[in-house]
């Protein structure tokens, strides 16, 4: 069984339940965050080349494209966190009878945090 087949089964959307779609979003967000960790390590590593290099690199993230990048990253972070919390509870055998309500609450919390984050990123940091 190849990687392509595995990814297709994870990220299948057609005919899938909200639970499966949430699983796919959580996994996808996790993979993006793992990739971001690598980018972040490169970002931090520029300190070795001097403060001016690091500061110049940070300016990239202060640009409009950088802000969009921050918003997308924040979206993945809150989705992974909120859906991960749902996952941690049900995977421990807790609140199984109310898992649909719990999942809806996780999505609601993620969307609320997303909106708050966008406001902060665009109007405070931007």
């Amino acid at each position: 069984m190849g990687l392509g087949e595995a990814l297709r089964s994870w990220l299948r959307v057609r005919g899938r339940s909200a639970e499966h779609v949430s699983f796919a979003v959580r996994r996808l967000a996790g993979m993006v965050l793992a990739l971001y960790l690598v980018v972040h390590m490169v970002d931090i590593s520029t300190l070795l080349m001097g403060e001016h290099v690091y500061s110049a690199f940070l300016q990239v993230f202060a640009s409009p494209i950088g802000l969009v990048f921050d918003v997308v990253l924040w979206a993945f972070l809150v989705l992974h966190g909120a859906l991960g919390l749902y996952s941690a509870l049900v995977e421990a055998g807790l609140l199984l009878e109310r898992r649909k309500v719990l999942l809806a609450a996780a999505w609601a919390a993620a969307l609320l945090l997303l909106v708050v984050g966008i406001v902060v990123i665009l109007y405070v940091m931007g």
């Binding site: 339940s17 639970e19 499966h20 699983f23 049900v90 898992r99």
Partner: peptide
């Protein structure tokens, strides 16, 4: 190995 996709129960 179960990751709580719950499509088994849904389907």
């Amino acid at each position: 190995s179960c990751h709580a996709a719950f499509d088994c129960s849904e389907k």
